[in-house]
């Protein structure tokens, strides 16, 4: 599922990551919306996918302690979705790359 939580643009005092948008450069987290795990592929022909695989696609997500590829949207900037490789324990961002590019 690709729903982003609604976010209010004004209450940003808890947002602290510095996120490198591949289109705009480093911007504070307050400008972005989180988009969940990256590289969850929606099959081109969903009819050909069996129930088990579709259920996996819908509901199963990784929850790693460590490196995680995740989607962000520069919601209050360029509006583009992109991918980020972030360590969920240290919060350090190792890479950001465009949709369609492979995880570096």
């Amino acid at each position: 599922m690709k729903l982003l939580p609604p976010r209010s643009p004004i209450k940003g005092s808890q947002e602290m990551l510095l996120i490198p948008c591949p289109y705009c450069g480093n911007r504070p987290e307050i400008e972005f919306a989180y988009g969940g795990e990256a590289h969850v592929v929606r099959a081109a022909a969903p009819r050909t996918v069996d129930d088990t695989a579709w259920t996996e696609f819908l509901y199963f997500r990784k929850n790693p302690r460590g490196d995680h590829a995740e989607r962000w949207r520069h919601a209050y900037g360029c509006g583009r979705f992109f991918n980020v490789k972030r360590n969920t324990y240290t919060d350090q961002i190792e890479a950001s790359y465009r949709i369609g590019e492979t995880l570096p």
């Binding site: 690709k2 929606r42 949207r73 583009r80 979705f81």
Partner: peptide, 17 residues
């Protein structure tokens, strides 16, 4: 309104580019 636009943008940018 905002949620639907975001969802549309999401599919347009990432699934149906």
């Amino acid at each position: 309104a905002a949620r639907v636009l975001t969802m549309m943008e999401d599919y347009l940018q990432t699934e149906f580019p």
